[in-house]
Design a binder for these strands. Sequence first.
DNA 1: TCCCGTCAACCTCACTCTGAGAACATCTCG
DNA 2: CGAGATGTTCTCAGAGTGAGGTTGACGGGA
Lengths: 250, 250
Amino acid sequence: MNEQEFLEAYDPRAYPSVAVTVDVVALTIRDDALHLLLIRRGEAPFAGHWALPGGFVRPDEDLSAGARRELAEETGLGGEGLRRVHLEQLGSYGAPDRDPRMRIVSIAHLAFAPDLPDPAAGSDADAAIWLPVTALTSRQLAFDHGRIIDDALERARSKLEYTPLATRFLATEFTISELRAVYETVWGHPLHAGNFHRKVLSVPGFVESTGASTERGGARGGPRARLYRAGDARLLHPALLRPAREETVR
Amino acid sequence: MNEQEFLEAYDPRAYPSVAVTVDVVALTIRDDALHLLLIRRGEAPFAGHWALPGGFVRPDEDLSAGARRELAEETGLGGEGLRRVHLEQLGSYGAPDRDPRMRIVSIAHLAFAPDLPDPAAGSDADAAIWLPVTALTSRQLAFDHGRIIDDALERARSKLEYTPLATRFLATEFTISELRAVYETVWGHPLHAGNFHRKVLSVPGFVESTGASTERGGARGGPRARLYRAGDARLLHPALLRPAREETVR
DNA sequence: TCCCGTCAACCTCACTCTGAGAACATCTCG
DNA sequence: CGAGATGTTCTCAGAGTGAGGTTGACGGGA
């Protein structure tokens, strides 16, 4: 039996059926607080609970394409806005009992988005909304989505250390202070402005100057700040490490 | 319709069927070279090619349990030996055409093992063997396993930087030189012995002294080395960074 | 209009960490 | 026993970091 004959004789239904979904933890920063995109479930199971946007993978769709589609559907975002969103795979969640309906393995994704408009209401039966991460308790979340979100937040905090992805939360042009605010918001921790400034400019390829400055000073005074855009680095060397977290080490 | 009624009326077959497998990239160090566990495929597709050990997830089995089972089946390893193996999820691979038979999403796992005996021959129709990673070209590998292995190697190199998992490649007691050899083998890069020694002992919880020393000096001379075992740290602070890799940054 | 508080940008200083080299004792092998 | 290898420790220069201070532009209220 050669490869050709084998494929023709192959019966896909002979193997156990598991459903595969993609879920997306989409993060953005609004009003100096970290928000994530959630959907209020209208149907059982977990009716009335918050859930991550997601759905079944389509037959001819790559996993990342599925995640990007789900994100586009829920945010109502077109191609141009989506291009500025960073999307990466977070991990797979497949405990046998994680969904009471059937065996479902979910490939969770993590997205970093600049401040987006509110999701288009009525585009779907379920209401999608940006919620502050601090406003959530695991009890209000469907399935194992609380755990997925915990993992996503830790991944996000960690990614800011050694990648320039903090810029993905901002417009294409930004000030060092705005960038610092991203780090402070995601890490939940104030940073030393002078040291942050020195560090960001000293890491090769993190940011590049546009030559321009802001039109006005800050809302409460201060000089105009210089504008930067993201540089060409994919990794930060040396990394921008979080202040020591002794408790997490052991 | 309440939650109970909903579940009874639910038809799992209404959703697209995708098969879910687990694959394992198991790494070990033999003769100062990094090896990985591979299987020579006996059947189509990709008959005669090398493939990662793996298989379908069983209906009531967690993903990590499936990976551990596949590893145990191929290595012939019992419960005790398996306990010393580090296993973590690597990522999911689900391109629609990655398997010519049907849509298969594979949850790849990464394992770090101490030097294990050769796989039990004949336990399976396919021959499992430890192969040096340098002896592989992508062309000899089935499916997208070449890409999975590339990702696994990069993850392994990175994990040695900020976790104490290098000790998982060694016996429970080891010398600093043996630990350094692990880093040199995985990173493919000689390290400064004195600086490595200082660094390992200065990172809290990385290793702890047993008080004992080796029975003999090295094979080519030198004093007896002190023995250590893994400490209780889960993360290395500060991290043991690879020598600068400018080329990978941009 | 004129202060005063705010804030971007830059600077200073002490301290730590790192890479490179070397010293020295201890061991194996021939 | 001598030569060479290796484990462990030390030194030193340079880079990086945390904490604090200085300067001057700017907004807003008195």
